[in-house]
Design a protein around this nucleic acid. Structure first.
Length: 207
DNA sequence: ATCGGAAGCC
DNA sequence: GGCTTCCGAT
């Protein structure tokens, strides 16, 4: 039941633990805080989405989907953050397109200025060497998925995961990642703790 | 509007 | 590596 996941965290020693949902603290630490890397575009988007800022970008109707309501204004905000005064939507959207291959984002085809986050990938993509559990890890990926969503099933996910570095997990506790606090409400999330085969779904309302 | 190659920057 | 810049193609 208990595992050694927290015994060799190394660079992740500041990770927090809980029974429920598991995040490394980068997921809710401001990316521009001291000691962190420069802000990445997807951090920035989640930040704006989380703050419900201004309406340049808003959540869409589907899980993880967002709509850029004012492309040039979003580009200006991004340019200000990065010190690129000539940023525009053409360039910003190129950066978004580079996320397709990384599986961080993909395009909602047919919907103008609409993209979708691949939340399950964010951690795996950016932290390929998270500590592993000594026991077998569950086949399900790190998850903060709405358990009732049908479009995201485990077979799709397995296909999307790289064959070799098996999905690894890390737990966090305490503060909930800020961007998740602003995800669409009324959904039930399910977690996959690193060393347990399953965990009961819990409601976001209990967080 | 959207895509993705190519080159450049840090 | 993660964009930024530019641009021809769809």
């Amino acid at each position: 039941m208990e595992c050694n996941c927290n015994s060799s965290l190394g660079p992740f020693s500041s990770t927090y633990w809980s029974r429920t949902v598991l995040f490394p603290d980068w997921a809710y630490k401001p990316a521009w805080s001291p000691g962190s890397r420069q802000v990445q575009l997807w951090h920035f988007l989640l930040e704006l989405l989380g703050r419900g800022e201004g309406g340049a970008i808003t959540w869409g109707s589907e899980w993880g989907e967002f709509v850029i309501r004012d492309p040039e204004r979003l580009a200006k905000l991004w340019g200000e953050r990065k010190g690129k005064p000539h940023m525009n939507y053409d360039k910003l959207s190129r950066a978004l397109r580079y996320y397709y291959n990384k599986r961080i984002l993909h395009k909602t085809k047919g919907k103008r200025f609409t993209y979708r986050f691949n939340f399950s990938k964010l951690i795996l993509v950016n932290y390929p060497s998270l500590p592993t559990c000594p026991q077998n890890t569950p086949s399900a990926p790190f998850s903060v998925f709405p358990s009732q969503l049908s479009f995201y099933n485990s077979s799709i996910d397995r296909a999307s995961l790289n064959p070799s570095p098996f999905p690894r997990y890390i737990q966090s506790k305490g503060r909930f990642p800020s961007f998740l606090g602003h995800l669409p409400q009324g959904l039930t999330y399910q977690s996959s703790p690193p060393c347990h085969q399953s965990a009961p779904p819990f409601s976001s309302a209990n967080l």
